[in-house]
């Protein structure tokens, strides 16, 4: 009966361990390739928040900082980019001149 169900089972089930392996591999390689651990990224995130907070009030809960790959302009490969999505709550009046 088990076989009967596996007959209908969709291939490339996202929960199957092959996909899990691929996702984990992609993430670890992004950090390997730029020689940047999650810990370094966390420190960077803290510093960015510190600097930006001098000028504007930001939504720290929604803040998203990560290293991703983007297609390179000069060859067919990819280059790493620092991606940051920082929602602004409001500008700080004191720094507006």
């Amino acid at each position: 009966m088990l076989d009967f169900f596996s007959f209908f089972k969709k291939k490339n089930d996202p929960a199957a361990s092959g996909s899990v392996a691929k996702d984990r591999l992609k993430l670890v390689l992004v950090h390997d390739r730029v020689n940047c651990s999650s810990q370094v990224l966390e420190m960077l995130k803290t510093d960015i928040i510190k600097v930006i907070s001098n000028y504007m009030e930001i939504d720290e809960e929604e803040l998203d900082i990560q290293i991703t790959q983007t297609p390179s302009e000069d060859n067919n490969g990819t280059v790493p980019v620092l991606y940051a999505n920082i929602p602004i709550k409001s500008m700080k009046k004191s720094n507006m001149g």
Binding site: K11, D13, A16, S17, G18, A21, K22, K26, L29
Partner: peptide, 16 residues
């Protein structure tokens, strides 16, 4: 294992 989705396939590895 590839057919069951429990191993990365050729495309997964070459893409990465």
């Amino acid at each position: 294992l590839v057919q069951k989705g429990d191993m990365m396939n050729i495309e997964d590895v070459t893409e990465i």
